[in-house]
Each structure stands twice: as C-alpha cells, then as structure tokens.
Design a protein around this nucleic acid. Structure first.
Length: 580
DNA sequence: GCCGTTTTCGGCCCGACTGTTTTCAGTCG
C-alpha cells in the first residue's frame, strides 16, 4: 500500500517530529513529552524496515519509543502529509524561531524569552535587537550573552553545516598527534561521530588522559590552526579551527579514560540506552566510572566495560542506538568479525582515460597490484553517457584487447572486463545483449533522467535488476552527501528484486556518495544480497576510497562473507561465472 | 508521551561550562 502523493517520506516525518519536539520545549511543555517526540524521531531515523509495511500491519508501536499516540501521528503524516495536533502545535511557534536555535549557546529557553519579551521571531530581528542593546534587559541575559549571540550569528553564516568525514580525517590525525605529543598525556584518542565512522561530521572530539589536565588544556588552545577559543575549563576545551571545524578536547585521569572515551564516542542514543540498561542491572554509569552502590568498578578498556555489564563488545561503528544493545544483551552476534580494509581482495568499478578517468588501464592495474589486490574490474561509462565520454561498441571491444595485453604484464592480477551501463528511462541497458554477453560483469547505474516519482524510479531500477546481464547495481539512490538528495526510490523493494535475481548491490565508496547508505545494508544482506564495496575510482588516488567504503560497511555490521570483493579471488571468479 | 523480570503508576541519563546569578538555569554533548 502506497501513501497518497500528499504523504511525507520518512526523512520528512523524522524532521517534523524533531521540530515538534523543539516547539513543545519552547512552549514549556512537559520535558518528558519533549523527549518522547525527540526519541520517536530518532527511532524512525534508525528504521531499516519499510514504513508502509509497518503501518499496514499496525506494527509501528513495536518500535521502541513509539507508543499509541505517536504512532497515530506518524500514520497521519505518512498518509496525509500532516497531523492536526502537530499542525496546531507548529502554528503556535513562528517558523523563524527554529532557525535561531542553530546559534551556538542559544537554545529553546532563550528563544522563548526573546520571543515573548521582545517579539523577536527571526535571526535577522535577533541580530538587530542585539545591536540595539535590548537583550541585556532580559532576566538571565547579560552583556556577554548578547555579545556571544552576535558572534554566533556571524559564525552561522561562515561555518554552516557539516562536512564529509574524509575531509576531516587529516585534521583529526594532526590534532591527535599534537595531544599525544604532550609529555603528560598517557592515552589519547579521537572520539565522537568521527570514531563511529559516520559519513559526515560536525566537529572533532578528542579524549586524553593525563595527570596534569590543565597543562594539556593550555597547550591545546594554542595548537596550530586554532583560530578561536570557544570555551576552556580545567578538563574541557572547545576551539574553532581555521578550517571552520570545531574541535573539543576532554582530559581526565587515566583510570577514567575508558569511560570518558566511551561517553564521548556516543552516540547519544547509545549512551542513554546503555545507562538505562546499566541502571536496570544495578549499576550506575557516567563519563568517569562504573559504580555499583558504593563500589567503583575499574575497567582497563571499553571491552571490559561492556563485559562487566554482561554485554558482547560493541564496536564504535555500531553504537548508534539501532538496537545493538538488545542484540548484545541476548548474547547475539559478537561483531568480532566486522570487515576491515585488509580483507579487501580486489576491486570493481574503476574508470580510465577511455571515458572520464585520469589514468590509463595499465596505470590503474599497477596501482591495484601495489595495493596487494588480486583483481581489478574495469568499468568505464557506457555509450549513453556522452557527457562522460562513454564507450562505443568498438571502443569497448578495443578496451577488452587492451585488458588482455595489460594482464600479460601483471602476472597474478586478473582484469575483469566490465562496463558501468546507464539505466535508460525505460529500465533497459544501453548496449545490445550480444555486447553485454562478452563482458565479465555489468554495473547498472542511473546517471540521468532523475524523476521525482518514487514508483517510476523504482520500477525503472527493478527492470534493470531483472536484466540477466546485470551483475551489480551502482550507487542505488544517486545521493551526493551535503549536496544533493538521492532520487526517491523504494529501497526495500529494490533489495528484494536484487535478492531474487542474484544481483549484487554496490556500496559506492566515494566519500561524497557512500551509497547504498549503511542504514540499509543489514536488510540487504539479511535478504541474501551480496554487497560490493566499489571505489568508483576516476584516478589512482580514488582507489583508496575503498577504506571509506569499508568503514560504511562496518557501520552496516557487515563481515567479509557479506562483501563480494572480500572473498578469496577464486570465489569471486566463481560467483561472476555463476551470473553468466 | 513512553515504558514495564520492582508493570498500568511513577519514573524517565548525566555532568561540564558559562553567565548570570548569591545558589542556579540554560546549553551542550
């Protein structure tokens, strides 16, 4: 059953519930009701089942954090695009208020105050009121608050948004090395969403242990690249780097380090759940220690922390509050078998100068050999992709001959001959069957003709999946992180089709894509679909994106057995043959 | 508004830092 065209998609429903939670807070409603709305938004965001199915089967309340009341509202949002009670609620708060909350240090309570006492309802009006010196009159506000808000409004414009994890990696490594180099530091680590391997990050969190936190703090706020000190206490400091990124450092005693590292690795949802769980077991957990009554329980590392609570070790990548604690508590999968970069045995999906790549096939082959890989699947663009120099039938044949010559020069390296074939608007591929039949593999991808109609796009992709020559489905949603939403598709339906027709799904490892999203990977492998971690390399350096793809695969809970290009080379060859 | 191996009421994670306050509220993670 599909929702009518007025209905909201899952992402929008998550956003509406989140805004409703903020509205409730601004209106001074019961804080636990506020939390319930926020919790429901989080739970839906983590959902990997099909929303329409859950609604049809009346199983929304099976989701932890969603009860009778919120289930009804979610049904309304999905079916009608609106819920009467939420509409009423949102009408009570001017929309500009929500934008003001992005100002650092400016939360719901302050928003309520400027709105009620000064009639300020937009960021622009707020800036004006600050310049007119009108905020300092308000109770709880003062000179410094007003100044901070002004600075914050300017920072909003300059530093808006998140950035790709891969883009923050160098800065994170540099800061970690700096902290570790301090003579009093015993242990240090990067924490936060970066450590959890999230595809985008807002800041860099660092945790260190030292007998002299004050000295570490003093050094940190003067580190290279620090442009502004946002806050600095005796154990915690926040700075703004020249790159616009924020970095936070927490320094504790070495006994406390595992707890602090765990706390600041998060996620918030994971921590909340773990603390509730600990409490039920008679423990109390905070960022410094695990206690039971008067007894403080010391642990050497995070493994011991989980073990003491009677849980399997949960790697950082899986700490998203997506049900991992329940699995660990049941004695479920221990996750010691998560895929690692060293498990990769070769790669598919690379481009060469024949279409829009920057290196020749021979150069790419040498680079794969240098990385210790056993095979390389070349897949330039197809002839419909004229914008990318797609290959004609003749050019494709010539590339096949070139591949044979290159293979002779690199003993031990297999080159699989393939193509990234455009999925045309009607779902067909853009070469005749006899051409496709000569190839070792075919990646089918949508590159043009994006439409906003979910059913049309889903049908188009499913048609391509049914094509007997399709080996893998490329970047399933077409999203570009921080740039462009993916086209609307019914992912569960496409996963089902791939399982039925034995088509692998690509996890495109380009940091801008990481598509299919890790949130869907578990459902895919549970359905029996094989995942291929593909670099989609357009130059030699692009091959190393496979590491980002492996991180995303870990977040999806994948083991080497789930990933085609982590299999032994002979098994990969066998699987490709089985497709033909 | 949600939840339940103390279950239909009475709880709901916890602490640092800031700025405004003479004891704490608000924000953030």
């Amino acid at each position: 059953m599909n929702a009518s065209s007025r209905g909201l998609d899952l992402d929008r429903i998550v956003a509406v519930l989140g805004e409703a939670s903020v509205a409730l807070e601004i209106l001074g409603e019961n804080p636990f009701k506020v939390r319930a709305y926020a919790g429901a938004a989080r739970a839906l965001d983590a959902l990997d089942a099909d929303l329409d199915t859950l609604i049809a089967e009346k199983r929304l309340t099976d989701i932890k954090g969603i009860g009778k009341g919120l289930a009804e509202k979610i049904v309304d949002l999905r079916r009608d695009g609106a819920d009467p009670e939420i509409d009423l609620l949102m009408r009570r708060v001017p929309s500009g208020i929500f934008e003001m909350l992005a100002i650092p240090g400016f939360g719901p309570k302050k928003a309520k105050a400027v709105w009620e006492k000064l009639g300020v309802t937009t960021v622009g009006e707020l800036e004006y009121a600050c310049n007119e010196n009108r905020l300092i009159e308000l109770p709880g506000f003062g000179e410094k608050t007003q100044e901070k808000i002004l600075v914050g409004i300017r920072a909003l414009a300059r530093y808006a948004g998140r950035r790709l994890r891969a883009r923050a990696a160098d800065e994170a490594a540099r800061l970690l090395a700096f902290v570790e180099s301090h003579p009093s530091v015993v242990r240090a680590a990067v924490a936060g969403s970066f450590r959890r391997g999230l595809e985008t990050v807002k800041d860099i969190d660092l945790v260190a242990s030292s007998a002299d936190p004050t000295a570490v703090m003093a050094a940190f706020v003067k580190a290279d690249g620090v442009e502004e000190v946002i806050g600095a206490g005796s154990t915690k400091a926040s700075v703004r780097l020249a790159s616009g990124l924020q970095a936070d450092l927490r320094v504790v005693g070495d006994d406390e380090f595992p707890h602090t590292l765990h706390h600041f690795t998060g996620s918030k949802a994971h921590n909340i759940e773990l603390r509730s769980y600990a409490k039920k077991k008679g423990f109390a957990l905070n960022e410094y220690a695990l206690t039971r009554g008067d007894e403080t329980i010391r642990v050497a590392d995070e493994r011991e922390l989980y073990a003491t609570l009677g849980l399997a070790y949960i790697p950082p990548e899986l700490r998203e509050g997506h049900g991992e604690i329940a699995v660990a508590a049941r004695g479920g999968r221990p996750w010691s078998d998560l895929i690692a970069p060293a498990d990769i045995t070769g790669i598919f999906h690379c481009h060469t100068v024949a279409s829009d790549g920057k290196n020749t096939l021979e150069e790419m082959a040498a680079a794969c050999r240098d990385r210790g890989w056993a095979y390389l699947g070349v897949s330039d663009h197809s002839r419909a992709a004229s914008y990318a120099g797609g290959l004609s039938i003749d050019e494709l044949a010539r590339q096949g001959e070139e591949a044979d010559r290159v293979m002779e020069r690199f003993p031990g390296l297999t080159i699989y001959k393939g193509i990234e074939s455009d999925i045309l608007p009607d779902g067909s591929l853009d070469y005749p069957d006899d051409v496709l039949d000569k190839l070792d593999f075919v990646i089918a991808s949508v590159h043009s003709g994006f439409v906003a109609d979910e059913k049309k796009m889903t049908d188009r992709i499913v048609t391509a999946v049914k094509n007997p020559f399709t080996t893998m489905l490329g970047h399933l949603t077409g999203r570009l992180l921080l740039t462009r939403e993916g086209y609307p598709v019914n992912v569960p339906k496409i996963i089902e089709a791939c399982a039925e027709h034995r088509v692998a799904i690509e996890l495109n490892a380009n940091p801008h894509r990481l598509d299919l999203d890790w949130r869907h990977l578990r459902a895919a492998v549970d359905a029996g679909v094989v995942i291929a971690v593909n670099p989609d390399a357009h130059r030699i350096a692009g091959l190393d994106h496979v590491a980002e793809g492996v991180m995303a695969a870990r977040k999806g809970g994948l083991a080497p057995r789930h990933v085609l290009n982590a299999w032994a080379p002979a098994a990969v060859a066998q699987w490709l043959k089985g497709k033909r």
